[in-house]
């Protein structure tokens, strides 16, 4: 009789084994460049092997778009430092978005998300493209239902987050967890600071000095290790702004045309430029700053004619190209699994 119970128990366990893969999770130690500040994770989303794997699978999964034609990687391409080379991104059924896809490099450290800073965390930012008909889907709930048909994803969800089905919590947490591994701090500029190989040449050094000089004041907003102060400015792009920038969130006139300072890391790879992608090259961007922008009422006082010669503009651009982290954009751990 006792043997009977034992065999019955054994058969239950063997059923469980065949229905779910044998998954074991473990903490992941994310390597952070020594010059970068400490990375503080949300209490409910510290990185683990399976959380990162689930996020990586979801990031490149076409089931995340309504018509299964797009994934996060469609507009955030690793070789372009997680941008897409378009002025504004292309969404469902060929629809065109209103803004240029931002880089996701070092997104883990951003204080506010979106160009007007309306979104407080990386987790909540993930709701944006999943509830926008010009991006991936008008609503994420049908997508969640579709993902739940995948037994392996459900198993990952259970072990990684303790939830036996995929839900908005799991999707947002896993994608955020993967994106927090997008760490870029190994450019030639970084290595030159550390006294390692790949020293900068004369032109690049002249450009660096200009960048950090009171004459250009570039580094006042593009500051710190991320080359952004994460603040919001009107740089005098237009006389009238079709996209109101920060005013979209605040409805204050003084915020019209103010957009978050973008990072300059990997800027060489993230053309076209500006919030609407209307500037095609770094040369065009530097020419714009040298001219001093329009006379918009909200324009920051530091945007004024700089009087840079053609040679100096070329120096500045040469310095900006030293901010490219080639190891980052070739990191196979950030590509789809199996590629």
């Amino acid at each position: 009789m006792r043997w009977g119970y034992f065999i019955l128990l054994l058969s239950f366990f063997s059923c469980a084994e065949t229905n779910s893969p044998n998954l074991h999770d473990s903490e992941v130690k994310v390597r952070i460049p020594s010059a970068f500040p400490e990375l503080v994770y949300p209490a409910d989303n510290s990185p683990t092997k399976l959380r990162v794997e689930l996020g990586r699978r979801l990031f490149y999964d076409n089931r995340l778009s309504q018509d299964e034609s797009l994934n996060c990687g469609s507009c955030h391409v690793l070789s372009a430092a997680f941008t897409d080379g378009r002025a504004t991104s292309q969404g469902l059924h060929g629809s065109v978005g209103k803004r240029n896809a931002p880089t996701l490099a070092n997104v883990a450290w951003l204080k506010r998300l979106m160009m007007e800073g309306g979104v407080p965390t990386l987790e909540t930012q993930i709701l944006v493209p999943l509830h926008d008909s010009t991006e991936m889907a008008p609503s994420m709930m049908p997508i969640v239902d579709r993902l739940n048909e995948d037994e392996y994803l459900r198993a990952l969800s259970l072990v990684a987050y303790g939830r036996d089905s995929i839900d908005p919590f799991v999707v947002t947490r896993a994608l955020a967890c993967f994106q927090r591994t997008f760490i870029s701090g190994d450019s030639r500029y970084d290595r030159s600071l550390q006294g390692r190989n790949d020293q900068m040449n004369e032109r690049e050094l002249r450009g660096r000095d200009l960048f950090f000089s009171p004459r250009t004041q570039c580094s006042e907003c593009h500051s710190g290790v991320f080359f952004t102060d994460m603040n919001f400015y009107n740089i005098g792009l237009f006389d009238e702004y079709a996209d109101r920038g920060k005013a979209r969130a605040t409805d204050r006139d003084e915020d019209v045309g103010r957009f978050k300072t973008p990072t300059l890391r990997n800027i060489q790879l993230t053309a076209p430029y500006m919030h609407d992608g209307h500037m095609k090259s770094l040369e065009e961007v530097v020419r714009f700053y040298n001219a001093g922008g329009t006379a918009h009422r909200n324009k920051d006082g530091r945007i004024r004619p700089l009087g840079l010669t053609d040679e100096e503009q070329a120096d500045l651009i040469a310095f900006l190209t030293t901010l490219t982290d080639w190891n980052f954009v070739q990191n196979e751990e950030l590509l789809p699994l199996g590629k």
């Binding site: 979104v119 407080p120 709701l127 509830h131 609503s139 919590f169």
Partner: peptide, 23 residues
């Protein structure tokens, strides 16, 4: 996403009644 689907404040329960691009 912190709320269970049954809550009117959840992604499912709010039925699109939240600003996805803002708070």
């Amino acid at each position: 996403a912190n709320y269970p689907n049954s809550s009117p404040l959840s992604v499912a329960g709010s039925q699109g009644m939240f600003w996805q691009w803002s708070t």
